[in-house]
Amino acid sequence: MKTESKEILLLRGLADNDKKAIETIYKENYNIVQALIINNNGSSEDAKDIFQEAIIVLYEKVKTGTFTLNCQIRTYIYSVSKRLWLKKLMQQNRFSLTSEGHEETVQIEADVDDYEKKETEFKMMEKAVSGLGEPCKSLIEAFYVEKRNMQEIANSFGYTNADNAKNQKYKCLMRLKKLFFTQYKLDS
């Protein structure tokens, strides 16, 4: 019971991007994943990538409000890492994968698929944002990420008034949406 509530706290922390929680999850699980990857034709760089992807899979899951896993965090991360690495090996035509006792007992296939879809979307948005250029990029970030108000934005970006800044932001947003949806429609 006690470990369970601790695990739930960690998952909540992960959902909130809390540094302490992420550190704990990282510290307690990284080494076994690294051992898995290195024993299976991977490097420590690969291990880092795969492990971080696995944490993002878990993050996407808890973001949907599911804080109860059917297993321990450790088993979950291990299973997901293994699945992700297997996929990568298959892409590179290097099949063999030997496990180290932690047999895959949990269903993570759906979560991994969901993550992969979201990762493609992430890449699309990343491309759209980087294609936006300045000052649009900073303008959009100031408004939608930092949630600053228009008057403040007008001052720091050198627009004569809030209406001008609003107009500019509108144009930038339209461009960003266009960049994003062109890719999105191409892909689907």
């Binding site: 991007n17 540094k19 992420i22 550190e23 990282y26 990284y30 880092k48 971080q52 944490i55 993002i56 993050y59 973001k63 979201k118 979307e121 992430f122 948005m125 990343e126 944002v129 939608y144 990420v145």
Partner: peptide, 18 residues
């Protein structure tokens, strides 16, 4: 867009922690 920003933050955080 929000998901992108959150994931971006998480990725940075993960690297930092690593």
């Amino acid at each position: 867009f929000d998901r992108f920003e959150n994931t971006k933050k998480l990725k940075t955080r993960l690297n930092e922690v690593h």
